[in-house]
């Protein structure tokens, strides 16, 4: 199933800009979430041990459906499996390494990050002032193309090191 998604993703890429906010948009975003895990370095103490899974949390309304689950299915990063957790309310948030904050909850990003563990949580959003509200990586749509905004300061605050290779692709704010 993952393979099918990957194929779908790759073949769809040239048409990303024209897609708009559709189901395809979230398939790409789900793949991006997975890729972030590869270009971001977490402090070692966020994992209980070397086998502890990489937990991706989705806070607020879930725009991915099943696509996110499928994007990480059977995949690992540095030998860690992926676990997807969904939090409806703030009080539901548990410890996780990547926390996708849906557009509806963009303003409560800092609270959410604190709820998810404070340090060592990579927050990813898709609202226009997500960075301003303390988010680290924000998806933008620019000329029908999915772009990235990354706050190096927020990342540093969260004790995360973001690869220069990723930064080259993003708009650093």
């Amino acid at each position: 199933m993952g393979m099918a998604v990957a194929i779908l993703l790759l073949t769809a890429l040239p048409q990303i800009g024209a897609v708009g906010r559709t189901a395809n948009e979230y398939e790409v975003k789900a793949a991006f979430l997975y890729n972030f895990a590869q270009f971001v370095e977490w402090p070692s103490d966020v994992f209980r041990d070397s086998k502890s899974p990489m937990v991706i949390g989705v806070f607020g309304q879930d725009p991915f459906g099943s696509t996110l689950d499928e994007a990480v299915k059977n995949k690992t990063v540095n030998g860690r499996r992926f676990v997807i957790k969904r939090f409806k309310a703030l009080r539901d948030i548990e410890t996780c390494q990547i926390l996708f904050v849906s557009a509806s909850e963009g303003e409560r990003v800092e609270k959410a990050a604190r709820a998810a563990g404070g340090k060592g949580v990579l927050t990813v959003g898709e609202s226009s002032h997500f960075i301003d509200h303390g988010g680290i990586i924000n998806f933008t749509i620019d000329n029908s193309k999915i772009g990235l905004e990354i706050s190096v300061d927020h990342a540093r605050n969260a004790s995360l090191k973001i690869s220069s290779k990723l930064l080259r692709l993003a708009k650093v704010v």
């Binding site: 890429l13 990303i16 890729n35 290779k165 990723l166 080259r168 692709l169």
Partner: peptide, 14 residues
Amino acid sequence: DNSTAALAFFDHES
């Protein structure tokens, strides 16, 4: 090596 991110995120420009 330099191209890995570009490849991962399908970034032709980069």
